[in-house]
Amino acid sequence: MSAPVLDVRSIEKRFGGVHAVADVSFSVAAGEMLALIGPNGAGKSTCFNLVNGQLRADGGEVRLAGRSLAGIAPRAIWRLGVGRTFQITATFASMTVRENVQMALISHHRTLWSFLSRAADKFRAEADALLAQVGMAEQAERPCGVLAYGDLKRLELAVALANDPKLLLMDEPTAGMAPKERTALMELTRGIVRARGLACLFTEHDMDVVFGQADRILVMNRGRLIAEGTAETVRNDPAVREVYLGAGTTSGGH
């Protein structure tokens, strides 16, 4: 088995007196979809931010393709190959769909500091190819402010893929979407992850998505990992049922 793309070892984070993340270790392999779930405030977001460089760990180590990410700024981590999508979509509202992707490509190809050329002419074909991958090619000319929510999510995915990442970090990728759209987006993601050999780490509250799309699931509570494994293992874990899943009456019987 090849080395994992993302390797997290015993990371720690404290905020004041609160132990937000305590001794958490996990890894994600190429082509793998790993879900991180847990109650609100369990430390999932903190964990995410430790990986993407927004926060600095108090202890432990995060490695991307064998390289330690300690002390590297978020922008530099992006250059090392980490694409991100956000819980609440973050796109450039004053640009068209294509221009959003072009912007990411301009940054990726390091042609930002050009003052006289026209940005709209840069990397058009490459942008259109990425949009085609997520099924957004026909909407390339539309202002992204008028897109339907599901389409914004797909645009975000195209933007996240623009730097040809090794690792995809998705924070509640399906929040606010309809059931079928959720599944469709994550199947799309899963196809791309498999085809490109990316590693994908995501958080999610929709149990249909988690149990249907993740290869492996991590469960956090109060800053610690309390369970890890396949859908079956996690679903039958009494501790997970108690702190997170409940009786399953409002989450489709999971």
């Binding site: 929040a175 606010g176 409940g246 009786a247 409002t250």
Partner: peptide, 14 residues
């Protein structure tokens, strides 16, 4: 009311 909440909290909400 249930958006972004853990399943166990959603049950309390119900």
């Amino acid at each position: 009311p249930s958006e972004g909440l853990a399943p166990v909290i959603v049950e309390q909400m119900a």
